[in-house]
């Protein structure tokens, strides 16, 4: 059984960066950010990592709770997309009621596949006093957005929620990297 890492940032803090790189992960590139979290896809799936990362970033930046909440909401969607649609290439087009069982089976198959399970999800963050830049990368083929305008549709809300939660959102590296910019709200300490 895979040993999951302790998500204890103080444990891995160094004078120059906060880093957590899970063992047995597929090789990945990074840009030497101020915070680097690299997890296997199966770990990112099983553990709710977004709240932990958002809390740490908000603490480092000394941002208030409501700003931490929007970081958490955006990160949650970005990490979920990176795992399911990026690394595992599971698309939403079958998320009708009849297709839900198939979707569940596809996720379970990905978790059981040692190659897909080990694909990296990488969170990189850099910041200044007034701005946080946070990238989430995967090792898939490039996520294609399937947006639906029907409010009853069971999928297609994630990217819109991400865009609502951050101040800027952009794709890079063939839609394998999502960059989210958060700015400190003026007048809020």
């Amino acid at each position: 059984m895979t040993q999951h890492p302790r998500l204890d940032f103080e444990f891995v803090a160094s004078p120059t960066a906060l880093r957590l790189i899970e063992p047995d992960i597929a090789p990945f590139e990074n840009s030497s950010p101020m915070l680097l979290i690299a997890l296997r896809s199966d770990t990112a799936y099983r553990l709710a990592v977004a709240p932990l990362i958002a809390k740490k970033l908000a603490t480092v930046l000394r941002w208030v709770e409501n700003q931490a909440t929007r970081i958490e909401m955006a990160l949650q969607e970005a990490i979920a997309n990176a795992v399911v649609h990026g690394n595992w290439n599971i698309q939403n087009s079958n998320r009708t009621l009849e297709g839900f069982g198939d979707y569940c089976d596809e996720v379970d198959a990905a978790l059981a596949d040692p190659v897909r399970a080990a694909k990296a999800v990488v969170v990189e963050a850099t910041w200044t006093v007034d701005q946080l830049s946070c990238d989430v990368s995967d090792q898939g083929a490039g996520y294609i957005e399937l947006r639906k305008s029907d409010p009853c549709c069971a999928y297609g809300r994630g990217l819109a929620l991400t865009a609502q939660s951050c101040d800027e959102m952009a794709w890079d590296n063939g839609r394998r990297r999502m960059r989210m910019i958060f700015r400190r709200v003026p007048g809020v300490p």
Partner: peptide, 17 residues
């Protein structure tokens, strides 16, 4: 404590069912 877009989607599937 927390819900994401996938959780919302699952509630919509339950509504459909």
């Amino acid at each position: 404590d927390q819900i994401d877009s996938a959780g919302l989607g699952m509630l919509l599937l339950a509504r459909q069912s």
